[in-house]
Amino acid sequence: MQAPPTDQLHSKLIPMLQEIQERLGYIAPEAVEWLAKELKLSEQEIYGVATFYNFFRLNPPGRHEIRVCLGTACHVQGNEKLLDTICERLGIQPGETTPDGRYSLERVACVGACALAPAIVIDDEVHGRMTQRALQRLLDKIDREDEEAMKKRGEK
């Protein structure tokens, strides 16, 4: 009736990678080793799959994840310029994390908020109808909050 047991097992790979990434933030080499044993796959097979799909990252993410939507609607509304601004401000390119580990930046295909283009997702919150000014304010706000939190910790 069902697919053979090993096929069934292998079909768990992507869901399990998703679970690991959701819980850990990235796919660590140790996790690949673990999965290989769990799913009767070689580490290479898992690595091939993990690097094929955009969603999986193999490095720890920054504390704040900025995802710039580059769907068509967002492109037409000029999101690439906003991306440039972010790159300039953070000093990193898409796919990278700032050296202090605070921000990581990704370009993503459509997030489905086309009616609100251009859209930028920061820490899973969609910010629509972005402008240069709104973007700078948003980043300023995060910086400020981080700074305050740091201070608080410092006082303790």
Partner: peptide, 20 residues
């Protein structure tokens, strides 16, 4: 049945590689 190598990444960046 060894699977010591794989195609990593995709598209133009595809390359033959081992895990990590």
């Amino acid at each position: 049945g060894t699977a010591a190598i794989t195609i990593a990444k995709r598209g133009h960046e595809s390359r033959i590689d081992t895990a990590f």
